[in-house]
């Protein structure tokens, strides 16, 4: 996760570097450390260092890390020639290296020659069947080809071994949601909540999946998770506020006519509605009538 201070630092450095204020290497280091994806900037500033022999030799052994970083960024920007050059240099320096082998596989992948990339990856896996990066690349490859069921299969295989990897769980959850397999997605989000119980985003996503699944029990649970999202975000998440309203109205429709004994928090939805109104009044006053009519449509 990128914290707020880290992000402001990164943005400050980016502006500084963009305006020619130096500090390109620090910026690249920070990008690498935070694992953020700013490929165009990395490509531009990384190349400017690599093309300057003096600056490059100043880096010492870090030079090779930079080559790798630039190669990956170049592939992301589809500058395949640059990537190819970088990989060539790396290969000259580190023949037989698996890390370079990985890059070659990625280059094949970015060219779209899937079969060859697959071949490269499987030969890498033969040497080390637990190379997490290569296993993940396989998933990404299946996904890039639009082969979602393949991606799910690879991911499940990966998670069988590396079951504590929450990023993989998240990816799987998102794939399931995109395929409308909500029950499976719910399981994945539960797993994510378990690994990071204080992250409101997972609570929110779980609530949304449950709401989509429908049914009284699921809706009630969804409402609770929307509530926890509100608690964890301090009521700033409009999505969760809308969710509370929607859940309450859906529950009201389902239990209409029935003798209702639940009513644990009768006030929550009205509070959520007022909070929404307040937020809209502050941030987007022009949209306020829209909100009001939408809320009226939900009236319980």
């Amino acid at each position: 996760m990128v914290t707020k201070t880290e992000e402001t630092e990164l943005n400050r450095l980016e502006i500084q570097v963009d305006n020619g204020g130096g500090g390109a290497w620090e910026y690249l280091c920070l990008v690498r450390k935070l694992k953020v994806r700013r490929s165009d900037k990395v490509l531009k500033h990384g190349l400017s260092i690599l093309n300057d022999p003096k600056k490059r030799s100043n880096l010492g052994p870090e030079e090779w890390t930079l080559y790798e970083q630039v190669a990956v960024a170049a592939m992301d920007c589809q500058c395949l020639d640059v990537a190819k050059d970088c990989i060539k240099v790396l290969q000259k320096r580190f023949p037989e290296s698996k890390r370079v082998g990985r890059l070659e596989g990625m280059l094949l992948e970015s060219k779209g020659s899937w079969a060859e990339a697959e071949k490269a990856y499987s030969s890498l896996l033969e040497e080390n069947p637990f190379d997490q990066v290569v296993l993940k690349r396989r998933v990404a490859m299946a996904k890039a080809q639009g082969n979602m069921s393949g991606a799910i299969e690879w991911l499940n295989k990966y998670l069988e071994t590396f079951m504590a990897d929450h990023d993989a769980w998240r990816e799987l959850a998102e794939i399931y949601v995109s395929l409308q397999m909500y029950k499976q997605a719910a399981y994945c989000y539960e797993e994510l909540i378990l690994s990071q119980p204080t992250l409101p985003l997972y609570h929110l996503a779980y609530a949304e999946v449950l709401y989509t699944l429908g049914g009284l029990e699921n809706l009630q649970t969804a409402k609770k998770y929307y509530a926890s999202t509100i608690d964890l975000t301090g009521g700033k998440n409009t999505r969760a506020l809308f969710g509370i309203c929607l859940c309450t109205s859906a529950i009201g429709q389902l239990t209409k006519g029935r003798n209702k004994e639940e009513k644990e928090s009768p006030e929550l939805h009205s509070l959520a509605a007022t909070a929404l109104e307040k937020i809209y009044k502050q941030r987007a006053p022009t949209k306020l009538p829209l909100l009001n009519s939408a809320l009226k449509g939900l009236k319980i």
Partner: peptide, 17 residues
């Protein structure tokens, strides 16, 4: 723990509103 969160959310919203 979630049922407790409803009350807590209520408290949070009340403060916000």
């Amino acid at each position: 723990a979630l049922p407790k969160f409803e009350q807590r959310a209520e408290a949070v919203l009340r403060k916000l509103v």
